[in-house]
């Protein structure tokens, strides 16, 4: 089971231990304890559901960052067939914090782009903790353009603590790379399906996040800045990240209420890492549904719809003739 345990997961582990003990006992003594076991399993599920329905926003951020949470390539392994990864931006390098390639899901061929974190230190160094450089965004754009040219829908998995803030990233135009992607994705002539599977930190997430439909995992977060970054600036103290997370309204439910996403994808009891296979199955169904939904759209229609979607985003009020000035 989980090698890393969040404080609110501890009661779950107690039950898991009991269930395992009973299973051992059953095997050893050739007893039928199935009804007791299923009772305990039910209890576990109920406890998880109850706990998770009451999680604070900051606790959800911690679930989204859980080191056992499935990442892009885990889902690829579980639900995508014939996956062929493609590499490099044809300009500078191959950024391993973003994975791109061709795959098939439920008989539909598509282009996949997704941010990829590492499971251990070694892999995290390779993946740069899921923090892309400009070449990552440019590679993603290259893959998306291939999708457009060859009539394949694009599915984008967002899971990043942010675009990498470093010297090389600035030298190679991190801001321009993200801006360019927003501009190009706005008019990409093929469906774009966005799924926020974990962390959606700011421009680093949005850089592969413009689409025709935006789905979000129940325990994912997505907002303008990381809670730590916000706390450091507005509270002048990184330790106030939990307060910042609350203030930022960064949960899936918040974003649905604000009309910024289309749908929440429910996670298994305890979160995606408690049952990755089940999570993957749910995700697969959602992706297939969206690919099929957008299949018949003419590119022009799709683009018009996409432009209107973003045109309408924003909350302000308008009054007449408020202090006009001339010069």
């Amino acid at each position: 089971m989980a090698r890393f345990v969040l404080e609110f997961e501890k009661p779950f582990l107690e039950l898991v231990r009991k269930i395992e003990e009973m299973k051992k006992l059953q095997e050893k003594n050739n007893l039928d304890l199935s009804s007791e076991i299923s009772l305990l399993e039910k209890k576990l599920t109920e406890l998880q559901k109850k706990t998770y329905s009451g999680l604070t926003r900051w606790q959800r951020v911690r679930v989204a960052r859980h080191p056992d949470r499935p990442y892009t390539l885990d889902y690829v392994r579980m639900i995508v067939t014939d996956f062929i990864e493609i590499h490099g931006d044809r300009n500078y390098a191959d950024d391993k914090a973003i994975v791109t390639g061709f795959g098939t899901i439920g008989g539909h061929k598509f282009v996949l782009i997704g941010q990829q974190k590492g499971r251990d230190t070694k892999e995290n160094i390779k993946r740069n903790f899921g923090m892309p450089h400009p070449e990552g965004y440019r590679k993603a754009l290259r893959a998306m353009k291939l999708g457009e040219r060859f009539g394949l829908p694009v599915v984008s998995f967002i899971d990043t603590p942010g675009a990498f803030p470093g010297v090389g990233a600035e030298e190679r135009g991190q801001a321009e790379a993200i801006a360019r992607n927003l501009f190009e994705m706005a008019r990409l002539g093929t469906p774009i399906i966005i799924v926020i599977i974990g962390e959606g930190a700011s421009g680093g997430a949005l850089g592969i996040g413009i689409g025709d439909v935006v789905l979000m995992f129940e325990n994912a977060w997505y907002t303008v800045i990381s809670p730590e970054g916000c706390a450091a600036i507005l509270w002048r103290d990184k330790a106030k990240a939990p307060e910042a997370a609350e203030a930022l309204k960064l949960s899936a439910r918040d974003l649905l209420e604000l009309g910024m996403i289309d749908r929440i994808i429910p996670e298994p009891p305890g979160g995606a890492h408690w049952n990755p296979e089940k999570m993957a199955e749910t995700l697969k169904k959602e992706i297939i549904k969206e690919i099929e939904r957008f299949k018949g759209y003419e590119p022009e229609k799709l683009i018009e719809r996409r432009l209107q979607r973003y045109r309408d985003m924003g909350v302000y009020r308008e009054v007449k003739n408020a202090r006009p000035k001339t010069s």
């Binding site: 700011s202 421009g203 303008v224 985003m313």
Partner: peptide, 12 residues
């Protein structure tokens, strides 16, 4: 998130 989406809106 509304501020983040202004990046998308203006780019569109």
């Amino acid at each position: 998130i509304l501020s983040l989406m202004q990046m998308a809106k203006t780019a569109c």
